[in-house]
Each structure stands twice: as C-alpha cells, then as structure tokens.
Simulated assay, not measured.
Amino acid sequence: MLNVDSAPPVPGLDAFNAQGAEEAEAGLLACCASRVFAREVAALRPYRDLDRLAEVAEAVVLGLDWSGVREALAAHPRIGEPPREGSPAAGSEPSGDRERPSGKHSGRPPERHPAREAAWSRGEQAGVDTAGREVLDRLAEGNRAYERRFGHVYLICATGLSAGEMLARLTERLGNDEDTERDVVRTELAKITRLRLAKLLGAAP
C-alpha cells in the first residue's frame, strides 16, 4: 500500500548521503558558504528526506555565530551586481584532484564550485534583469548605504522578488538596529540555503 505521508523521492539525496565528507561539504558550501555549516550538516548524514535535511540546515544556519554568518555573506554578490565567479569564500583554497575516501576527511578545505554558485545567484536575482535604470541606481546607492551602516553586504532571499521589492525591503531594513538586522540576515540566509539544497539535490530546477 502506498504511504501517502511519505515525501517524494529526491534524485540526489542517496548520492549525497553516500558521498565522502569532503565532497558532501563542497556541495553544502554552494548552499551556504560557512565551513562550520558544511561540516556540521555533512556530519549528520544520512538524511531520510529533503525536508529533514532542510530542517537541520536551517537550525545550523540560525545557530551560526556571527563570524560564520560573515563567512557565508562573503560568497554573495551585491543585489543588482554580477556574481563574482572567481571569488572563494574567506579561508577556502583550491584543493586540486584527490581521492575522497567515503566517510573520511583529509583535513583539507573542501573544494567549492564558484561557477555553480554564480549561476544560482543570477537566477535568484532575476528580478533585477528587467528593472529600469532608476531602480538599479537606487539599489546601488542603497547597497552602499547598507554596507556603511552594517559593515556587510545586503542579503535577501531574492527568488521571486522584483527589483522594486528588493529595494523597498532594503530601505526598510536600513532602519533596523544591529541586533535586529543580524536576526533578519540569519533568516534570509536560511531561506536561501533551503532553496539551494533543493537545487543541489535535483529537487528544483
């Protein structure tokens, strides 16, 4: 009998569960470029379904200390600007070809895939593609004002948002105090991470 409560199968979940630690962490870094996040989420495999993986990932993101959040933010382009395809997250370095024994970790930083991250960022920010010059200029000005105020890039889960909506939320968030804004940033990072996990495992286009 079919279990109607079971989650639909996710194409890449079994492979993700079976990967060596470094390979799994490399994929996770494309979803959230914090090494602590990647290490903790990879270490808790296997996951029974995507929902459980997403729940764990969200909890880890929300529990990151601020240095971990800043590391993740460094991989995100400014809203309205092209992704930086060649820029690794802070502290990561090329690792080259190597054996990846299943379930073991060599101690080297996992290899990231910035081209994949850049492609995802372009898709997530598709709302700026049709924006007029005035809105783009105001976004650029808002980005600068935000970075002066908070010291890091303006992060928003941009999927499905127009450039005008991104700008309106940026303007609203400029009124936050630092603690409030850090909570908002963690929440937005968790949303982005959840969407990217589905892409990583082939459960989303």
Score class of each variant (00 low, 15 high):
Ser87Gln: 15
Glu111Ala: 13
Gly91Ser: 12
Leu167Ala: 12
Arg39Thr: 09
Gly107Lys: 09
Ala75Tyr: 02
Arg84Cys: 02
Ser92Asp: 13
Leu28Gln: 00
Tyr47Cys: 00
Gly103Met: 03
Ser106Ile: 04
Arg112Asp: 07
Pro110Glu: 08
Leu189Val: 13
Val69Arg: 08
Pro114Leu: 06
Ala204Pro: 04
Arg84Gly: 00
Lys104Thr: 13
Asp137Val: 02
Gly80Ala: 03
Gln19Glu: 15
Gly151Asn: 05
Arg182Gly: 05
Arg182Asn: 09
Ala204Trp: 10
Ala89Lys: 09
Gly27Lys: 11
Glu81Asn: 10
Gln19Val: 00
Glu23Met: 13
Glu58Lys: 04
Pro114Phe: 01
Leu201Val: 07
Gln125Thr: 06
Ala74Ser: 15
Tyr154Phe: 15
Asp65Tyr: 03
Leu197Asp: 01
Arg108Val: 08
Gly107Asn: 09
Gly127Thr: 05
Lys104Leu: 15
Thr130Gly: 11
Val135Leu: 10
Arg196His: 03
Trp66Gln: 11
Arg35Lys: 10
Ala190Arg: 07
Asp49Arg: 12
Val36Ser: 15
Met166Phe: 12
Gly63Ile: 06
Ser92Glu: 14
Arg98Phe: 00
Asp65Met: 03
Ala24Tyr: 08
Pro94Asn: 04
Asn3Ile: 10
Ala126Met: 02
Gly103Tyr: 02
Val135Arg: 07
Thr171Met: 07
Arg84Ile: 04
His105Leu: 11
Arg196Phe: 06
Ala190Leu: 02
Leu195Thr: 05
Arg149Gln: 11
Arg45Lys: 11
Asp5Trp: 14
Glu165Gly: 10
Val185Glu: 05
Glu55Gln: 14
Ala72Pro: 09
Asp14Cys: 01
Arg112Pro: 13
Lys199Asp: 10
Arg108Leu: 14
Arg138Asn: 11
Pro94Gln: 12
Pro109Glu: 05
Cys32Phe: 06
His105Ser: 13
Leu189Phe: 10
Arg186Ala: 02
His113Tyr: 09
Ala24Phe: 07
Glu85Trp: 02
Gly20Ile: 03
Leu201Glu: 09
Phe150Gln: 05
His152Ala: 06
Arg100Gly: 08
Ala198His: 12
Leu64Ala: 07
Ala26Thr: 02
Ala18Trp: 03
Ala90Thr: 15
Phe150Tyr: 04
Val185Leu: 05
His105Gly: 08
His76Asn: 06
Gln125Pro: 00
Arg100Lys: 08
Ala145Gly: 10
Leu53Val: 01
Glu81Arg: 15
Pro114Thr: 09
Gly63Phe: 02
Val185Met: 06
Ala18Ile: 02
Gly86Gln: 12
Pro8Arg: 12
Ser95Pro: 01
Arg149Ile: 01
Arg84Gln: 15
Glu165Met: 12
Pro109Lys: 08
Pro46Thr: 08
Ser34Arg: 07
Glu124Leu: 03
Glu134His: 10
Pro114Asp: 05
Glu111Ile: 00
Pro205Met: 08
Ala168Lys: 15
Glu40Ala: 10
Ser102Ala: 15
Arg52Lys: 11
Leu73Ile: 14
Glu22Val: 01
Glu178Gly: 07
Asp129Arg: 14
Pro11Gln: 07
Leu174Arg: 12
Pro83Met: 04
Ile156Asp: 14
Gly107Thr: 09
Leu73Trp: 02
Arg45Ser: 05
Pro109Trp: 04
Glu124Ser: 02
